[in-house]
Simulated assay, not measured.
Amino acid sequence: MPRPIIAIPADFREFDSVTWQAVQQQYIRAAVKAAEVTALIVPALEDGNDIDAILDRVDGLLVSGSASNVHPSLYGKEARESDGPFDTARDATALPLIRRAIDRAIPMLAICRGIQELNVALGGTLASEIHEQPGTWDHRRPQNVDRDTMYSIRQSVFVKEGSCIAGVIGPGEVRVNSLHRQAIAETAPRLQVEAVAEDGTIEAVSVIDAKAFAVGVQWHPEYWAETDSPSRKLFAAFGDAVRDYAASKEQHSATPRHHEAV
């Protein structure tokens, strides 16, 4: 059986005065190496994407992190310049993909910006500059360091007993690499909190009524997916769910249709 295919929504970015559709290599590598799937990039468009046509052709959805933030207007708040940068084309692409993937029982893994998009897509809100809130740690990425140091595994999160993620990486304390300025404020009604940081920041969620793997994490399992055991297990579980979906789709398409005699 050929490797199943997943969709990854792109960022709409500008480099040297030219606009590009871009996804960071670390997400694609983790998908290919750790989840063992084929990755296709979905262009970020304000309009023009046929969401169901895209999902008809894939077996999973990976919603990656990004340097941009979800636009506050999508969760009922006014946008401040400090809340940016924004990528409204990414918003217009990823949020509908998330909703329809859940509706169609297509496996999904959402990371960093992705977990925030997942929360907003299902009716939740976000908190900005969380390091300014009393009792909240500074979760921002360290400055003036190389990328391996930036994404080093140095923070504890606590995975809830009996949660979806506990079934993959085990319950209790897990060391991760969580880098973010924003976080979930009000959790969407359809989401279950799966893991929190020591300061109470929500670090992982799952979709309560999902009929397939549908998990979001605030940390970055993609960066060390080939060497860190919890990161690898999370991507492997996503890959297994994608393969199960692809197999069921193949079986359904191969089932002969019986027509009643006229």
Results as ranks from 00 to 15, higher is better:
Ala183Asn: 07
Tyr245Phe: 14
Gln24Leu: 10
Tyr223Arg: 08
His71Met: 10
Glu260Cys: 05
Ile208Asn: 05
Val176Pro: 05
Leu179Met: 13
Leu122Trp: 09
Thr19Pro: 07
Arg147Thr: 15
Leu61Ile: 10
Pro2Phe: 03
Phe238Tyr: 07
Ala237Phe: 01
Lys249Trp: 00
Trp20Met: 14
Val193Leu: 06
Ser64Gln: 11
Ser253Gln: 09
Leu97Gln: 05
Leu62Gly: 01
Val159Asp: 11
Gln182Ala: 07
Ile51Phe: 13
Asp59Phe: 02
Ala35Asp: 06
Gly200Glu: 04
Gly200Asn: 10
Phe15Pro: 07
Pro2Ser: 08
Asp228Cys: 02
Pro189Ile: 04
Glu203Gln: 14
Ser64Tyr: 00
Phe235Val: 10
Ala35Arg: 02
His258Tyr: 12
Leu126Ser: 09
Asp50Ser: 09
Leu179Gln: 07
Asp91Asn: 03
Leu74Ser: 02
Ser128Thr: 08
Asp228Leu: 09
Ala195Trp: 01
Gly124Arg: 02
Val63Pro: 04
Val157Phe: 03
Ser17Glu: 14
Val262Ala: 15
Gly135Val: 13
Gln25Arg: 12
Asp83Phe: 11
Val196Ala: 03
Lys33Asn: 09
Gln192Asn: 11
Ala92Leu: 04
Asp91Gly: 09
Pro107Leu: 11
Pro43Arg: 10
Glu161Ala: 15
His258Met: 13
Ser64Lys: 03
Ala197Asn: 05
Val23Asn: 07
Arg99Leu: 04
Ser156Gly: 01
Asp244Arg: 12
Asp87Lys: 01
Arg113Trp: 07
Gly124Lys: 03
Ala188Glu: 03
Gln182Phe: 11
Val32Asn: 05
Gly172Leu: 04
Lys77Pro: 00
Asn177Pro: 11
Asn49Tyr: 02
Gly124Thr: 12
Gln25Phe: 05
Ala34Arg: 05
Ala197Gln: 11
Ser229Val: 15
His139Arg: 06
Pro43Cys: 13
Asp56Ile: 03
Ile51Glu: 07
Lys249Asp: 05
Leu45Pro: 04
Val145Thr: 11
Gln182His: 06
Val159Arg: 08
Val23Gln: 05
Val120Gly: 11
Asn119Cys: 14
Ser82Tyr: 00
Val42Asn: 01
Ala237Glu: 05
Glu250Gly: 12
Ser64His: 00
Leu109Val: 14
Arg175Gly: 03
Val18His: 11
His180Trp: 09
Ala89Lys: 14
Pro221Ile: 09
Asp244Leu: 14
Leu95Ser: 07
Asn69Trp: 01
Gly84Arg: 02
Ile106Met: 02
Leu74Gln: 01
Ala30Asp: 04
Asp209Cys: 08
Gln116Val: 10
Arg140Lys: 13
Glu161Trp: 01
Ala188Ile: 14
Ile102Phe: 02
Gln133Asn: 01
Ile5Met: 07
Pro142Ser: 12
Ser248Thr: 09
Tyr223Ala: 14
Pro4Lys: 03
Glu14Cys: 12
Pro4Gly: 13
Ser68Leu: 08
Leu74Pro: 04
